[in-house]
Simulated scan of single mutants.
Amino acid sequence: MEPFNRVERENHPPLFYIASWMQQFPGLSAGFTSRHGGVSESPFSSLNCGLHVHDSAEHVVSNRERLADAIGMPFQAFTYAEQVHGKDICVVTAAEKGMGRASREHAIQARDGFITKEKGQVLCALFADCVPLFFYDPVREAAGLAHAGWKGTVLNIASATINAMHQAFGSEPQDIRAAIGPSIGVCCYEIDNVVADQVKGVIMNNHSESDYSNKVLIAQPGNKYKLNLQELNRNFIEKAGIMSSHIEVTQLCTSCSTDDFFSHRKEGGSTGRMAAWIAMS
């Protein structure tokens, strides 16, 4: 069953919620925006949440405010970062609350993973094909969110986030729930040998099954490969100690579904960004 459920409400943008988590854990809000329900104009139409793509800053802030209103959280609680395709994690405290919500200059700098125990704090990250990774520990009441493109995946930001939750909050992997959100699928993500060689290297260092690379890298003509980023991240999450029954994986491909999502690759690099969020109240 698809873990990200599309919900439409009158006068609000359509959103993709992790419905099973929110039903099981009252006070938790987690999900992913679509490209609809905002004010941005083409090629960012219409719910672009990224300030870094040369859209009108006024439009982007209005879109972010619409997201806040839709999920019933104050805009002042939304916290954004300047993402750099790395694996560094920020422990988000009350001091960082609201950073980056209205300007890039005031965002958390050079981070791609975020964890918190703060109630009322909304962690946000931006996507347009890269893989959103959601984490929630119902025992310690801690949440995490990570941005995993191919570079962050190869750096194993998934494990870095889980380890950071353990070190900062005492979260045990067996208690943590993880979800892999809408992103470019193996159906659409073709890469060259340069990227494939780095993926092969990380698989060799982290996986004991000799044929596992064939599940992640599917050979194509002309020395190309199809890359399954969702599966590679799922495997890293499981190897970090999270039970397979606690891992949700989407079937939604951003490149296949540009009617609902922005896709950097499909749309030639000129497009908007979706926001992933997770919050505890």
Score class of each variant (00 low, 15 high):
N5K: 12
R273K: 15
T153F: 06
S45G: 06
A107M: 08
D260L: 13
F134N: 08
T250E: 03
Y136H: 13
F16Y: 12
R104P: 10
D69R: 11
T271L: 02
G98R: 04
A148Y: 04
D69N: 14
T116H: 03
N48R: 00
T254L: 06
S159G: 15
W21A: 01
K87R: 12
K200S: 11
Q109H: 10
K87Q: 11
Y136I: 13
F25C: 09
G181L: 07
G241Q: 01
S255R: 08
N11H: 14
D112A: 00
G31C: 04
N228L: 02
E8K: 15
A275L: 09
L123P: 00
G50I: 02
E172H: 07
Y225H: 12
F262Y: 05
V7F: 13
L28I: 08
E58Y: 04
S210P: 03
E82I: 14
L51H: 04
L15A: 09
H36I: 10
G31M: 01
S56L: 11
I247K: 03
N223H: 14
A57S: 09
A125H: 00
E209D: 14
V39N: 10
Y80C: 01
Y212C: 14
E8I: 14
P221M: 07
V61G: 03
L51V: 02
E141C: 08
Q76S: 15
N156E: 06
W150L: 08
E141F: 00
V199R: 02
Q23I: 06
G86R: 06
N5P: 05
A158H: 08
V154G: 02
T250H: 05
I18T: 06
G268M: 02
A94L: 08
W21E: 04
L51K: 04
G181E: 00
Q174I: 07
I157V: 14
H166L: 11
W150E: 08
S46K: 05
N228W: 03
H12T: 13
S257L: 09
C130M: 07
S159H: 13
L51F: 04
R101F: 09
E231S: 10
M165V: 02
Q230H: 13
P14W: 02
L145C: 06
S171L: 00
E248C: 10
G38W: 00
D112G: 01
E65S: 15
N156R: 05
M73V: 12
I247D: 08
V139T: 15
H264D: 07
M243Y: 07
G241V: 05
T79I: 03
G185L: 04
S20P: 06
Q24F: 09
A164K: 02
P26D: 12
I203C: 07
K239E: 14
Q230S: 11
S46E: 12
F262Q: 01
A179E: 02
F44G: 02
G268C: 05
M22Y: 08
H106Y: 02
T33A: 06
L28G: 01
S20I: 10
D192C: 09
H59N: 14
E248V: 06
N163V: 13
N156W: 07
S40R: 02
H264K: 09
L232W: 04
K200I: 15
A102N: 15
I71M: 01
R9Y: 12
A30H: 01
L155H: 09
H12P: 09
A240E: 05
A143M: 15
N235R: 10
M1Y: 13
I108D: 03
H207Y: 13
Q109I: 10
M274D: 07
P14S: 03
